Amino acid sequence: MSGNGNAAATAEENSPKMRVIRVGTRKSQLARIQTDSVVATLKASYPGLQFEIIAMSTTGDKILDTALSKIGEKSLFTKELEHALEKNEVDLVVHSLKDLPTVLPPGFTIGAICKRENPHDAVVFHPKFVGKTLETLPEKSVVGTSSLRRAAQLQRKFPHLEFRSIRGNLNTRLRKLDEQQEFSAIILATAGLQRMGWHNRVGQILHPEECMYAVGQGALGVEVRAKDQDILDLVGVLHDPETLLRCIAERAFLRHLEGGCSVPVAVHTAMKDGQLYLTGGVWSLDGSDSIQETMQATIHVPAQHEDGPEDDPQLVGITARNIPRGPQLAAQNLGISLANLLLSKGAKNILDVARQLNDAH
């Protein structure tokens, strides 16, 4: 009898209710805020589980004197976190989706994509230029951005401005803007500013005609071990179906173009009346040469937790077992079709030249 009692006690200790789920994140304040929001949602869904947040620095956090596009290494903000995932030191990792490459290392998958916040870019102005827009900034004003995508589009749109690289986390960039006289304004992701509670610093939100956004911008991705079915089931509740389908289309477009950090590629997606609209573009580094096109596809946005595919093969690095396969494939095909259209119009040449120029500098 006593033996059975011990077995029952052991089973209770090993039951999922007692389990601590370890969540990996970057150390920056924004990353911690984003991770806290994901953990809060998981806690609400699984009140019996405990969650421990483990923060670590990544290569991208450490190399702050070089433009991201020049470092010449993929997975700048993800490699150390993936290493911890691989060694079973954490069970899942919360990322900004735009930091996750469209091809993940073997053994990993994006197990959830959370509801997207505003994906557009924002302009934050130096205190002396508050009330201005990019259009009304004085001639030769210097605007800071760490992104080739932003610089290429904005140089084309605002030729009277000069664009220079600015690195560091959000706090560091804002301090550089406010305390030094080098920059009249800087460009940042609206979602990051909003998550930090800095709505009052948003001086201008850039519309798609001015600057399309990065693939996955404004959404959070939760990376897990691809074979860890328990954790895949656990994080599945975080999937937002519309965000998922938009981001599958965007990531398929980028992957098929073979774009990345070192080339200016941008997108804009919208879901309306059962249609998914995808606009994508590529630019030369100075913005003088560009190709942009829009395509659409009829896609039914499923309700969360309709029964999805059981075999769960990944699409552009994403596993969404609780979302039907048909809409996911339709979104992926839309991204591939748009990429093929741009490639047929000469996108590869623009991107190759951009890559060579970026590598040469």
Rank of each mutant, 00 (worst) to 15 (best):
R19K: 13
I21Y: 09
I21H: 07
V23M: 12
V23G: 01
G24S: 06
T25G: 05
T25Q: 03
T25A: 11
R26W: 01
K27Q: 08
S28C: 04
Q29C: 14
L30M: 07
L30G: 01
L30C: 11
A31K: 01
R32A: 08
I33D: 11
I33E: 03
I33V: 08
Q34K: 01
T35C: 08
D36E: 11
T41P: 06
K43V: 15
A44I: 09
A44G: 11
S45M: 06
G48N: 15
L49S: 11
Q50H: 12
F51N: 05
E52M: 01
I53V: 11
I53N: 06
I54H: 05
A55Y: 11
S57G: 09
T59M: 12
T59I: 06
G60Q: 07
D61K: 05
K62C: 06
I63G: 11
L64C: 12
T66R: 09
A67P: 04
A67D: 15
L68K: 13
L68F: 06
S69Y: 10
S69L: 09
E73Q: 09
E73L: 06
E73R: 11
E73C: 07
S75P: 12
T78F: 01
T78G: 11
K79Q: 10
E80R: 09
E80V: 07
H83C: 13
L85P: 01
E86P: 01
N88P: 07
E89Q: 14
V90M: 09
D91I: 04
L92F: 10
V93Y: 03
V94E: 03
H95R: 01
H95T: 07
S96M: 05
S96P: 04
S96I: 01
L97V: 12
D99Q: 01
D99T: 01
D99C: 01
D99L: 01
L100F: 01
L100W: 05
P101Q: 08
T102D: 05
V103I: 08
L104A: 08
P105E: 06
P105Q: 11
P106I: 10
G107E: 10
F108M: 01
T109H: 09
T109Y: 04
T109I: 07
A112I: 01
A112N: 01
I113G: 03
C114P: 10
C114H: 05
K115Q: 11
R116C: 07
E117L: 10
E117F: 12
H120T: 14
H120I: 06
D121K: 01
V123N: 01
V123Y: 01
V124F: 06
F125I: 13
P127T: 11
P127R: 13
K128P: 01
F129L: 12
V130I: 13
G131Q: 14
G131Y: 11
K132V: 09
K132Q: 14
T133E: 12
T133W: 09
T133V: 08
T133Y: 08
L134Q: 01
L134G: 04
T136S: 14
P138E: 12
S141N: 14
V142R: 12
G144I: 01
G144V: 05
T145F: 10
T145Y: 01
T145I: 04
T145P: 01
S146Q: 14
L148E: 05
L148V: 11
A151K: 08
A152H: 14
Q153C: 07
Q153T: 05
Q153Y: 12
L154S: 06
Q155D: 06
R156V: 12
R156L: 09
R156G: 08
K157W: 05
K157R: 11
K157G: 12
K157M: 12
F158N: 12
F158T: 14
P159N: 13
H160P: 10
L161D: 01
F163C: 11
F163L: 14
F163G: 08
R164A: 11
S165I: 09
S165T: 14
I166R: 04
R167T: 12
G168I: 01
G168K: 01
L170Q: 14
L170W: 01
L170P: 01
T172S: 09
T172M: 05
R173L: 03
R175L: 09
R175A: 11
D178H: 12
Q180N: 15
Q180T: 10
Q181E: 14
A185S: 06
I186N: 06
I187M: 08
I187V: 09
I187P: 01
I187C: 06
T190M: 03
A191Q: 01
A191H: 01
A191L: 01
A191R: 01
G192N: 01
L193Y: 01
L193N: 06
L193K: 01
R195I: 15
M196W: 05
M196Q: 15
G197R: 10
W198L: 12
W198C: 13
W198Q: 06
W198R: 08
H199D: 15
V202L: 11
G203E: 05
G203I: 01
I205G: 12
I205K: 14
I205M: 09
L206G: 06
E209C: 14
E210M: 01
M212D: 01
Y213I: 01
Y213T: 01
A214F: 05
A214I: 04
A214C: 10
V215E: 08
G216P: 01
G216L: 01
G218T: 01
G218C: 01
G218Y: 01
A219R: 03
A219K: 01
V222R: 01
E223K: 01
V224W: 03
A226T: 09
A226H: 12
K227R: 08
D230K: 09
I231W: 07
L234H: 08
L234S: 03
L234C: 11
V235K: 01
G236M: 01
G236N: 01
V237S: 11
L238G: 01
D240P: 04
E242M: 05
E242T: 08
T243L: 01
T243P: 05
T243I: 08
L244N: 05
I248T: 05
I248E: 01
I248P: 01
I248K: 01
I248G: 01
A249K: 04
E250V: 01
E250Q: 09
R251C: 04
R251L: 01
F253D: 01
F253C: 01
H256P: 05
G259K: 15
G260V: 15
C261D: 05
C261I: 01
C261H: 01
C261Q: 03
V263E: 13
V267N: 15
H268D: 09
H268V: 14
T269S: 04
T269L: 03
M271L: 12
M271S: 12
G274E: 15
G274C: 04
Q275T: 01
Q275C: 01
Q275W: 01
Q275H: 14
Q275S: 01
L276E: 03
Y277L: 12
Y277K: 04
L278P: 07
L278C: 12
G280L: 03
G281D: 01
G281W: 10
G281H: 05
G281L: 08
W283Q: 11
L285K: 09
D286W: 09
G287C: 05
S288H: 01
D289L: 08
I291M: 13
Q292N: 11
T294A: 07
T298Q: 08
I299E: 11
H300A: 01
H300C: 13
V301S: 06
P302I: 01
P302V: 14
P302G: 15
Q304P: 06
E306M: 04
E306N: 15
D307R: 05
G308P: 05
G308Y: 01
P309H: 10
E310L: 10
P313N: 08
P313W: 03
G317H: 01
I318E: 05
I318F: 15
I318R: 05
T319I: 09
A320L: 08
A320P: 04
A320W: 14
R321K: 15
N322Y: 08
I323S: 10
P324F: 01
R325Y: 07
R325N: 05
P327L: 05
P327Q: 15
Q332P: 05
Q332D: 07
Q332W: 13
G335E: 03
I336G: 01
S337P: 03
L338A: 15
A339C: 01
A339I: 01
N340D: 12
N340F: 07
N340M: 15
L341H: 06
L341G: 08
L342Y: 13
L343N: 15
L343K: 05
L343Q: 07
K345M: 14
G346V: 07
N349D: 12
N349I: 06
I350Y: 15
I350R: 07
L351C: 15
L351H: 11
D352S: 09
A354L: 04
A354V: 05
A354S: 04
Q356M: 01
L357S: 15
A360I: 05
A360M: 01
